[in-house]
């Protein structure tokens, strides 16, 4: 039986206290798939992340080890920093770091809102478990709030590279199953 993926009171408190590590740790305990990258981004030490992955369920970690998730987290930080710059943000190292944290808090809050909405309305197969599409929606929402170009999510800063190639090369950022526009079924053509 899948875990109850609703947002717990502790997770709500972690958001109120702006404690991103704790928030994602609590989500990880519920096997929320987004928590893998969330925790890798905000965990306080590399050793802690290593221990968590090595001691965890390989299925949950998608059969990827510490090196993979650590690289994902690093590339995410770089991507957001470059995206901020492309969106017109100019700041020192510390200002950029603070801005990335503000984005991280927004993402966590939106994640919780989407999870709550999904849980209460039984969306998809498992209540409270998001699809890649739902995850992409709130990331794009936050990125656009901060004027980060939308293609910086699950994409790359190499804008001169054609999109399908970008996705195959850099699409692993969070969204290692992002497809090309060929997969879209909604638009009438």
């Amino acid at each position: 039986m899948p875990a109850n993926l609703s947002i717990s009171q502790q997770a709500r408190n972690a958001l109120a206290e702006r404690d991103l590590e704790r928030f994602w740790e609590l989500r990880m305990e519920k096997r929320d798939p987004v928590a893998r990258i969330g925790y890798a981004l905000w965990v306080s030490s590399a050793e802690k992340l290593k221990r968590t992955i090595e001691g965890g369920d390989p299925v949950y970690w998608n059969h990827r080890g510490y090196a993979y998730w650590d690289a994902m987290a690093r590339s995410t930080v770089v991507n957001i920093a470059v995206g901020l710059e492309r969106g017109g943000f100019r700041g020192s190292f510390i200002e950029t770091r603070d801005k990335i944290r503000e984005i991280g808090l927004k993402v966590a809050r939106w994640h919780a809102i989407y999870v709550n909405h999904d849980y209460q309305n039984n969306i998809g197969r498992v209540p409270g478990q998001l699809s890649l599409q739902q995850m992409a929606d709130y990331h794009h929402q936050v990125f656009r709030e901060f004027n980060i170009p939308a293609d910086f999510y699950g994409g790359t800063w190499l804008r001169s590279v054609p999109d399908p190639v970008e996705l195959s090369v850099y699409g692993h950022l969070y969204c290692h199953d992002c497809d090309t526009p060929r997969g879209y079924k909604g638009i009438g053509q």
């Binding site: 998809g124 599409q133 992409a136 199953d177 526009p181």
Partner: peptide, 24 residues
């Protein structure tokens, strides 16, 4: 019109990571 479509419309399935849910 394409400018009013969220980028998530261009994602299909979760084929290589079963931890995610299927879209509604």
């Amino acid at each position: 019109p394409e400018m009013f479509l969220a980028p998530s419309n261009f994602i299909s399935g979760n084929s290589r990571d079963t931890n995610f849910d299927e879209p509604e």
